[in-house]
Amino acid sequence: MAASDANAVPAVTMRARAIEYIGKRHRFHVWEALPWILIAAAYFVFPDRMTFGTQVLIAIMFALSLDLILGYAGIVTLGHAAFFGVGAYTVALLTARLNWGEPVTSLIIATLISAAAGFISGWFLLRYRGLTLLMLTLATAILLQEAGNYRSDITGGYDGVPGMEIWKLFGVFENDLYGRTYYIYIAVLLFLVFLVVRRIVYSPFGAALTGIRENVRRMHAIGSPVHRRLVAAYTIAAGIAGMAGALFAQSTAYTTLGVFDFESSAKVMVMLILGGTGRLYGAFAGATIYMLLEDHLAKLSPEFWQFGIGLLLVLAVLFARRGLLGLIEDIGIYFKTGGKS
């Protein structure tokens, strides 16, 4: 839709159309139930694979948090693992050092502390953009990792936090060997987090974030408090990433400084790009496909499975730059327009 078209339509009609468009976007669609049906179905179809399932759900939550800042606010970061790590370590240190292993409260504390870490680092770092920001976020994760290594008497360093003991969920449900309890627990949390994120991105605040992504100067010009908006989004994303990290630490009852690795920051970004950024469900598609592929290829060929992942990435970059969901959208448009566009 070109700008000249818009100018031809009266302002009132424009406004009505805009309201309709935004309202339509916000409404739940039938297809949106699909990922949730799949998540529920997986529980019944693959009861023996729930440990893997929990890891997939955690990856989805982590990718979703990145989508909020990368996909919507356009903040490019290579240090998102920092918050995942802060969440994981909060849970780990609470149980190992303070003997507090209650899952729900430690999850809340971990989320809050990660959000605080996001707020503090975001306040300083989000004055920068592009490459500078990329390097600074990367440095944040490395700094946290080195701090953990420096005080390995507390953190256990790269060997992992010793003596973690996660209590039963609500004092009743044990984390069984098959991981079924935690699958349900994490699936429910993921759903709640998703509702929050969905609400955020379709709110005026979310629209402002998209505006910042598309054109910062114009947002400044219309008087939008850009820095404050970015910090707010960054804080929320950090909190969600921290929650994913906390769930990781709880479900595996284990964490090491490896969670701060550059690889995990990069991996979550790859997942998101594979699925499609700025589309909410991109995180679901990308994380699931990445994890499934990794798992299957690693079983098929323990030595060369990374080749398969690499190939997929190359194909995605060549033929589906907007990710898998972008590709599906393109195909949908192609058929709607009868192949004319």
Partner: peptide
């Protein structure tokens, strides 16, 4: 045969459980 994963041990528990 299963891949133990990175030195951080992040993958190990899932692999062992499976």
């Amino acid at each position: 045969k299963r891949d133990e994963g990175p030195p951080s041990g992040a993958n190990a528990k899932t692999v062992a459980t499976e």
